[in-house]
């Protein structure tokens, strides 16, 4: 294990991992002083893709995982869309007749449907990292827990009782507020997730292929018991940019890294272009 860890360490000191000495950053962020003594701070790439078509985003998502630009943290805001988990079937999960004004695609990780409406009150993030058994554990649930910690720290910042619920959820007072999905590729992981700021249960039921009608009100009440969102918990709407900035800070603290705003490399852009036909294809989405 030691030798493989060394290998990973040497990998992470390749050209894409600029080490930055930052005493100042550590004094501000690191809770345990012993860690501050002798560590250099990694510089990680940060990208905010803004409002995007989900198909373009999923192509970029996969390109970041399969590219070679090092650890990256990113945000995006999807236009009205639904994205299916890798193993789901569109016609089984969705009431397709009610989904005509949604853009639908599939992602490369498992898990369930995520949908976003016109209001866009949700924060979507992605993390690509090299699995090193330190920051990113090999154990899948442990690695979910580590990354979900960023969301939990953010929610705790707002005074909420947030916790990790295995396998891949973040809950506030036992209600799910964030769903997360991870896949892995050649020693790296990609985790995508959503932090709900607002959520329209009725709309979710309308687009889902769940028998409703009869117990519609009861169903909504029971979903409200199991699911929540930030605006509801706080009783007010916080500015999305403010929340994202807190997430960035919590990310830097948790991963002992400094986020530096960057863009996709030429290679990632080329990879994205080669992946676009898949995410736009009927075969991929409706297989």
């Amino acid at each position: 294990m030691n030798s493989s860890r060394k290998e990973l360490r040497s990998l992470s000191s390749s050209k894409n991992f600029k080490k930055v000495l930052s005493n100042e950053g550590y004094a501000a962020h690191t809770p345990t002083p012993h860690k501050a003594r002798c560590r250099f701070m990694d510089e990680w790439r940060f990208i905010d893709f803004g409002l995007v078509d989900i198909r373009d985003m999923m192509a970029m998502d996969e390109a970041i995982l399969k590219g070679d630009e090092g650890n990256t943290f990113f945000f995006w805001t999807p236009k009205k869309s639904i994205f299916l988990g890798f193993f789901q079937k569109a016609d089984v999960e969705l009431n397709l007749a009610n989904c005509r004004d949604y853009t639908i695609t599939r992602r490369i990780s498992g898990g369930g449907i995520a949908f976003s409406d016109d209001r866009g009150r949700q924060i979507n993030y992605g993390v690509v990292g090299t699995i090193d058994n330190d920051l990113f554990p090999l154990d899948i649930i442990e690695s979910y827990k580590q990354i979900c910690g960023v969301l939990i720290d953010t929610l705790i910042h707002y005074g909420l009782n947030a916790a990790f619920r295995p396998i891949n959820d973040v809950v506030v007072d036992s209600k799910k507020i964030s769903g997360n999905a991870q896949t892995r590729w050649e020693g790296k992981l990609l985790q995508n997730g959503t932090l709900l700021l607002d959520f329209d249960i009725e709309e979710m039921l309308r687009i889902s292929n769940i028998p409703k009608e009869k117990f519609f009100d009861k169903k909504i009440a029971s979903i409200r018991e199991g699911l929540t969102w930030l605006d509801r918990e706080l009783g007010e709407q916080r500015d999305m940019e403010e929340i994202k900035n807190i997430m960035k800070r919590k990310f830097e603290e948790r991963f002992h890294a400094r986020l530096k705003t960057g863009t996709l490399s030429q290679r990632e852009k080329a990879l994205t272009n080669s992946l676009l036909p898949k995410y736009y294809s009927h075969e991929w989405t409706y297989r």
Partner: peptide, 25 residues
């Protein structure tokens, strides 16, 4: 979710879908 068709007790066709996680996919 499993969708299965059999012929004389033999699995003729099968697909599996759902919201589980499985790696490599």
């Amino acid at each position: 979710r499993s969708f299965v068709a059999t012929e004389n007790g033999i699995i003729k066709d099968i697909t599996i879908s759902g919201d589980f996680f499985l790696l490599p996919e």
